[in-house]
């Protein structure tokens, strides 16, 4: 899922400093699962902003709504009535949701409450870890199911580099060396010979390449 974390409340407050009434739009997708932008977080942020502004002697009216998800336009439509008389919409979705909301309401000031961090999963409750680099062409079959693109701090394809020691990456003792993990797994699977193949440079045109990527399934497009 997409992992996001809330921005410092002072930053969010500064984005809507000149507003009297705002809508806080939560999202019940990924950001609810990672405890950043679901119903609960939306209500808490709304209360916090109200209190903050009240203490400043400049009360803020904050209404809330939690969309099923904000990355499909149809789930944003039900917000239309709520959006009408607010000065701004604070979206607690990932960057995708913020943009869909902004697109739907061209005359509204739409701001993000979250920093969209990465694609990952949780290791224990409250800890999330990046697992996929969204490179556009999966190579996990060549690396024992461990992604060096995002888990190696240098994204190298012929690792481990000379900075790997005691299973850790040179950047931090808290970061596992992805290539040590790949090595261990290849060894356990009896496939160390795979590590001797020189992996050629990646085709980054399939990744972020100056312009948005699109995925099309013509068979399911409804005219």
């Amino acid at each position: 899922m997409i992992i996001a974390q809330q921005k410092p409340i002072k930053e969010i407050a500064a984005m809507i400093a000149d507003c009297k009434k705002v809508l806080l739009a939560g999202c019940q997708g990924c950001v609810a699962v990672c405890l950043a932008g679901g119903d609960k977080e939306t209500e808490i942020l709304a209360s916090a902003l109200r209190i903050m502004r009240k203490l400043e002697g400049n009360p803020l009216e904050a209404v809330t709504y939690a969309a099923t998800r904000q990355c499909d336009p149809e789930y944003i439509v039900p917000m239309d009535d709520l959006v009408k008389d607010v000065d701004a919409v604070i979206s607690l979705a990932c960057g995708v949701g913020v943009q869909y909301v902004a697109e739907r309401y061209p005359d509204k000031w739409v701001v993000p409450a979250l920093d969209t961090k990465f694609i990952g999963g949780s290791t224990v409750h409250g800890v999330w870890e990046e697992k996929c680099g969204l490179c556009g062409e999966c190579i996990l079959h060549r690396t024992g199911g461990i992604c060096p693109i995002i888990r190696c701090s240098k994204s190298i394809l012929n690792g481990p580099c000379g900075g790997s020691q005691y299973g850790k990456c040179e950047v931090s003792k808290d970061v596992d060396c992805a290539w040590q993990l790949i090595y261990d797994r290849m060894k356990a699977l009896g496939r160390l010979d795979k590590m001797m193949e020189i992996q050629m440079p990646k085709d980054w045109s399939k990744s972020r390449d100056g312009g948005p990527r699109r995925a099309v399934r013509e068979d399911v497009i409804i005219e």
Binding site: L157, N158, S172, I198, M200, P201
Partner: peptide, 27 residues
């Protein structure tokens, strides 16, 4: 490969690693 930028005087820089040292040798 090169030392990670974290160790230098521009730790907020974006690293490149478009190719790795093995590929560089080969190419």
């Amino acid at each position: 490969s090169g030392d990670h930028q974290k160790f230098g005087n521009h730790p907020t820089a974006k690293n490149v690693y478009d190719v790795d040292s093995m590929q560089l040798i080969y190419l």
